[in-house]
Design a protein around this nucleic acid. Sequence first.
DNA 1: GCAGTTGTTCGACAATGTCGACAGGCCGCC
DNA 2: GGCGGCCTGTCGACATTGTCGAACAACTGC
Lengths: 257, 257
Amino acid sequence: MPGSIQSIERAAAILELLAAAPVPLRVSEIGSAVQLPRATAHGILRTMLDVGWIEQDRVSGKYLIGEGRFAPGGRQVDPNELRARSMNWADPLAARSGEAVRVAVPEGPAARVIHYVFRPDHSTQKADVGALLPGHASALGKVLLAFRPSAGQALTDQALTPYTSRTLTTRSRLTSELAQVRRQGWAVEQGERQMDLAALAAPLTGLGGLVVGAVGIHGAVDRICDPNGVPRPRLLALVQECSRAIGRELHTPRTQA
Amino acid sequence: MPGSIQSIERAAAILELLAAAPVPLRVSEIGSAVQLPRATAHGILRTMLDVGWIEQDRVSGKYLIGEGRFAPGGRQVDPNELRARSMNWADPLAARSGEAVRVAVPEGPAARVIHYVFRPDHSTQKADVGALLPGHASALGKVLLAFRPSAGQALTDQALTPYTSRTLTTRSRLTSELAQVRRQGWAVEQGERQMDLAALAAPLTGLGGLVVGAVGIHGAVDRICDPNGVPRPRLLALVQECSRAIGRELHTPRTQA
DNA sequence: GCAGTTGTTCGACAATGTCGACAGGCCGCC
DNA sequence: GGCGGCCTGTCGACATTGTCGAACAACTGC
């Protein structure tokens, strides 16, 4: 099929139309300009609204081009919004798994913790919100690295700090590990950053399949994994379920009721 | 169908991925990052290549984000490229119609002439390449105005300079005229800018249905139209055929063989 | 040299987007 | 104030469209 994808071509045409327009445009104007039924134009507009390329004036209903997109280093998903959306699902995960929960977003080759839910028991714990987890030595980091080729690019063997004897310290081993993470859709960390700690993590998938963050649990190795070092299926299922739930939430950005 | 269009969502995801990447990425990397088969990712990438959102390194085959797109007043189609592509079809149009041919691109509410082909007979003529034709009083201008809602927005009744007694000088009459142009796909001008001149014009449709320019013929009123003021069908067909041919040319931007 | 990549093309299937028609809301004109 | 036109957004059936597996060729690195 040596043809281009029409939906995208049409979206591009409409986007250029809006970019060239000094004032917001109504759906019918756009439709007649590109010779498309209004319903079709509306569908394309709504999609571009969802992905943030364009904006809609709430009172007039007219559409206008979004601000400062695609600028070099253009903004990813807003961490605050992601935190807000994941809270509803992170709490139940902690309750049902009995472990502490973390949500993280990518920051260079590392993972920035943006949300933390304490383990249900009343032991002393410390929330490390704001902390930077190493990408190669944490479950959350591995997930982000696996689905963000841009980040992994910069990692050299020298940068793979060995935290424990189990830390992956060569680029080739890390690469194959990340390939496995991509295949199976989740990552595990056992004693790679701290000998007595293990963790599980899964990606948070935004619109279009783009991974915008990761969610996971962490705790004592013997609670997270069985004696053979295999993650306990129940915990794994809980993490994946939570990941999918937040993902679904991200797919419905019907903000502003 | 209260769902978004997936192709566009995926394109957006890939675009953000590329925007966040400091270095060019290969197809397979992109595919695994958004969990898509390579062929699918390739199709989306090719489309975004065609519309100019991304670029491809000719030697490595890697993809990188395009430069300076969507900047306020971002570039339209390059007039030089449009001129080059339309030349092959404008010449035959002049030969077969026996009239002079003009190609124009939008510039504000007016039409900038970027190409001119002399009428085959050897009468004295003057090529007005570079001239600015009024949008409301020329066939080329009406076509551009009809498919560029952004331009018409600024026109007030005061701006509708009356060149002759036949010039459309009220906004309402112009609006209905433009609606008709959109319906039928071509525009006519008879004595509206110069009493003894008539013209026919049709849009040049780029990718996705966006009108990027217009092509048309002009000459003595009695040669362009019949005594009743109706455009001669043969000439009209020739203009439309030429318009479609150039449009097809624009849809195949397989530049650089 | 071969084995493992890579980017790209082709074709068939069915999932997807398109488009006509309907409902709800708003403005403006009588 | 009520009415008519025009607007945006929704729903559903159809078929066009995009997707995805498999095959091809060119390239890289053991």
